[in-house]
Design a protein around this nucleic acid. Structure first.
Lengths: 200, 200
DNA sequence: GTAACAATTCAATAGGTGTTGAATTCTACA
DNA sequence: TGTAGAATTCAACACCTATTGAATTGTTAC
């Protein structure tokens, strides 16, 4: 039914494809996402997806990115009252994950990073270049990279447990209690001692 | 070359298939693992894999399990000096992950849980039934399930960051420093206060 | 020793995948 | 107005997948 050739008017299909791809990668991960499904959701022929983005992998790499800009958001969190940094960070992370779009991108990254070597490499790159730098800048600490790693473990673990696997009661816990539960962890990873136990 | 029909002698191929499957699921995850590859590694025809295990999914479910028995290992960790419980737990987790087999199973579970709904459900089940019970028993605390969830986030995050994505410097950090870094987190998740920040 | 059964392979099936090349229609610019 | 190029579809290709059914060979119990 759909006629061949270019459609009338200015085209927004390229963005439609990107959106559909983001959504599908986020929900299903890399492998389970098919170019055909993306094309379908964008109301377009599969060949057009390839025509625009070259390949499935390039599409993935073009489309997936952190749903926030670390260099903009982290300085404000890290500056100021050092005792509250863990809570501010936790609040930001949990708050961001409340947004459906951001959550979808994050779950997509985690899902993909756990199966696609290319995606894992990209994630490593992304983290090193953008997050580490911001954290090292914002904090005055020496071992900023390890600290950023540790923070990352807790963030990724939270995403996986609360949203991907959806284990209870954590999945249904209200945001404030989640923040309260993990804030001290971020606090110690960011500015606390790394080799001695803290007070329980 | 390989002749048809049953081979001479007692057969150990069923276990060979299980081993190959465990290895491949651990290394590549569910989707990327093919029955053909498993069969190949086990020196066997793909049809035999299906004949023994019914389907790829049933094979996965038969073969994947925690690489330790929570009900045997957790009581010893949770009993005794309450101040050392975080460190004992961290030492156990990190130590277990040093073993190549156990690590492969764990990465497989994490990888699969992040893409396979069925695997995620199984993981939920496994965690609820076996780990929660052991933790609730071993600890005298009330909100044992949430505590177990939080512990889970840190374990899973560690597995993903250190072994799957292999982000540096965490991936190359020696076991003792990893233990020291995350022990206080487990300590608070297991027996510490969950709503107020700890001392940094 | 023979009958049931278990282990094993072979060949095929039905369906999915990413990707390509050519054909068509529209837009933008000269 | 004409023409280069962009957007779009169609049909096909080459490949890979899990799974099935029948055929063959060995083992085990009577």
């Amino acid at each position: 039914m759909t006629t061949r050739g270019r459609r009338a008017g200015t085209s927004r299909t390229r963005e439609a494809i990107a959106e559909a791809a983001r959504r599908s990668f986020g929900e299903l991960g890399y492998e389970r996402t098919t170019i055909r499904a993306i094309a379908n959701e964008a109301g377009v022929d599969p060949a057009l997806v390839i025509h625009f983005y070259g390949s499935k992998q390039q599409l993935f790499l073009s489309v997936i990115d952190l749903p926030f800009a670390p260099e903009e958001v982290l300085p404000a969190i890290l500056a100021g009252d050092r005792n509250g940094v863990g809570e501010r960070f936790a609040r930001f992370v949990v708050g961001m994950l409340e947004d459906e779009n951001a959550r979808s991108v994050m779950t997509g990254m985690v899902r993909a990073a756990s199966t696609e070597a290319e995606a894992a490499a990209m994630l490593r790159e992304l983290i090193s270049r953008r997050v580490f730098a911001a954290i090292a800048d914002g904090l005055g600490v020496d071992d900023a990279n390890l600290r950023a790693n540790l923070v990352g473990t807790q963030v990724v673990g939270l995403v996986l447990a609360r949203y991907v696997v959806a284990v209870e009661p954590l999945a249904s816990l209200d945001a404030d209690r989640v923040v309260a539960s993990i804030a001290p962890t971020f606090q110690r990873y960011l500015v606390g001692p790394l080799t001695e136990p803290d007070q329980a």
